[in-house]
Design a protein around this nucleic acid. Structure first.
Lengths: 135, 135
DNA sequence: GTTTACGTTTACGTTAACGTAAATACTTGG
DNA sequence: CCAAGTATTTACGTTAACGTAAACGTAAAC
């Protein structure tokens, strides 16, 4: 396997963010790219983490929250105590996500109503024009 | 109809925010409560706006974005031009919301996998205990 | 009449998540 | 060899969304 690597500007343009943002994520300990000389090189794993961070951002999570969620995946959880705590964390996060979905659905319903009213108003306008043109 | 009104602390405790936050929303022009003497009084409509603002926050919208969405509902849209522009706004917002739902679903899938692994690990641990106790 | 509870204004402080700018290094083509 | 392009570090600036504190008003409660 070629084990693809990326430069910072490659990832920046791929994800539509600035290099400053990516360095900032590193500063905050969200990613740990290797160095080739003084330059940063990003592995596929780094790339995935960035992707997940941005996904978190899109749904309104803070960077810290994103890391917490991401770190749920790597299994440094040995004993029962940790496992139970992990289950709790996951459950709470899931509850929040379900709430968010409900909020989004509500908002979508509202927007669809607005769209309906719009088209209705435009429709009437069209009719008026048609009627006018029929003379 | 009694036309219910609310004090600032009533709304604050109902929604689990501080009075400071509610005053801040007013400062930013999101709500316009009436005054009784020097005290603010909130109508049912004010209350709904606050509710919608907080819904927006839960899904990661800024206050400005929330107001924009809320203001889509009141029909100050007269001419065709405005209606078409409104349709555009609504469509874009809807696209974002659908993206968010996808993001949430992805994250939920991941979390469920984690939960599965957890329960699996705990299950094995239980079996071990049971086996131990069978002696 | 004064404590207690609730409200107000004013103003400075704080955190997150970068933006922006300046100075410096590497390297690659012409 | 040198300019152009890309990278890095350092550091100060910025915006959003309140938090926190001080100083004051007022109205009910004891």
């Amino acid at each position: 396997m070629p084990s693809t690597i990326y430069t910072i500007s490659e990832l920046a343009s791929e994800f539509g963010v600035t290099t400053r943002a990516i360095r900032f994520y590193e500063e905050k300990g969200l990613i740990h790219p290797l160095r080739l000389g003084q330059k940063r090189i990003y592995t596929a794993a780094d790339r995935v983490r960035i992707k997940l961070i941005l996904r978190g951002k899109r749904i309104g999570m803070t960077l810290q929250e994103s890391v917490e969620v991401i770190d749920l995946y790597d299994p440094q959880h040995n004993n029962t105590q940790q496992l139970l705590s992990l289950i709790n964390t996951v459950s709470e996060r899931r509850t929040k996500l379900l709430q968010q979905k409900d909020d989004i659905d509500d908002m979508l319903t509202g927007l669809n109503e607005v769209l309906g009213l719009c088209e209705n108003a435009l429709g009437k306008r069209q009719k008026t024009i048609s009627a006018t043109q029929e003379n």
